[in-house]
Design a protein around this nucleic acid. Structure first.
Lengths: 190, 190
DNA sequence: GGTGTTTGCCAACGCTTGTTGACCAACGTA
DNA sequence: TACGTTGGTCAACAAGCGTTGGCAAACACC
């Protein structure tokens, strides 16, 4: 998804600085409040450079969310631990990579962000659910339930910052939420 | 919270039209993209009227989110049904009142919206949780978990509009999510 | 019926936004 | 050393934003 072996240019450092600043601003402020001027200032360059290298603000945003986002393979872990392991992986992803934070902040008001979020859902959670049930419709429902709990957890903990949710230890969170995800994936339909 | 017996003015209809238009716009577009001009056009009046009656865009937003938001009393229902009943109430609230949609859309990027959201949490879900456990810290954790699941459900269903989540029937949703909430409220600590 | 207040529109302000093009310095190559 | 290419700044643009003040019509009251 991301470019790998392009010819090295002298401006690569600038490009990277812009991208890094954009990541932080979009993740912290959402699409509208993250201005091109602010991003450029963070990157220590002129706003016009953003346009030169990314075409437009929308193009810059597209570059920010155009990253591989993969949950570690859950194939080899015991079936009974899928819930807790998945929750742990999601917490890691959330805390060490700003792209999910960006997608959530932006996806709530911006259609491109929402579309990308749906893409992550279809590409990561849906295939996971399909390994546990037979019908495609059932898998879709279960994946949606998993997404609701996992995104809801991130929402109250990292975005809305509800006190209790932000203060819960990682272990507590896994112990509480893991079984929910486990049930959504493996329990018989109610 | 809302004014009740003020002297009736001739402009009450206009005030109401502005408020109604603002509710829809804020709920649909979030704070930044809901412009005063667009709201005024929806209400069929001049943008300057918004300033006259609500002081500023921020004042208008404050008026929009300044509404009583109460979950129906859950005191008289059987303890074992708390989860399913609560989820049902939340779905009703979400579909018949735009204020929660507004708060979620805005709260993700706007601190005033987030603060109001935390207020709803503290005023509605926290007291509920305190009826089921003894220590205040435990209640806070459980309330946060309930909020994460319930808001996450709303997020994927009404805001991000994940296909499977949006298409699930109300009955299915209650049957799947109800037990999760029930467990968060009444299960012993893991 | 005259007078003061309310309701509404209009035009404009000052500011910020994304975006553009002119221009200069540094570099690579012959 | 000369020259085309690349990297970068600067100043400005048009558009949109929230916001303001003035003015005309409609109303309320004596």
């Amino acid at each position: 998804m991301t470019e790998t072996d392009a010819p090295r240019r002298r401006s690569d450092a600038t490009r990277a600085a812009i991208l890094a600043a954009a990541r932080e601003r979009f993740a912290a402020d959402g699409y509208e409040r993250a201005t091109v001027r602010a991003i450029a200032q963070d990157a220590g360059i002129d706003p016009s450079m953003v346009m030169r290298y990314y075409g437009s603000k929308e193009g810059l945003f597209a570059a920010v969310i155009d990253v591989e986002l993969v949950l570690p393979g859950l194939a080899e872990i015991p079936v009974d631990d899928v819930g807790t392991v998945l929750v742990g992986h999601f917490l890691d992803l959330w805390e060490h990579d700003s792209v999910l934070q960006t997608l959530l902040r932006v996806g709530v008001t911006n259609e491109a962000g929402a579309e990308r979020m749906r893409g992550v859902f279809s590409g990561q959670i849906l295939p996971l659910a399909e390994r546990f049930v037979v019908t495609r419709a059932d898998a879709a429902r279960r994946a949606a339930l998993v997404a609701s709990q996992v995104l809801g957890m991130a929402l109250v903990r990292y975005v809305l910052r509800f006190g209790p949710a932000a203060q819960m230890s990682r272990a507590d969170l896994v112990a509480w939420v893991g079984p929910t995800v486990q049930r959504y994936l493996t329990a018989p339909e109610p």
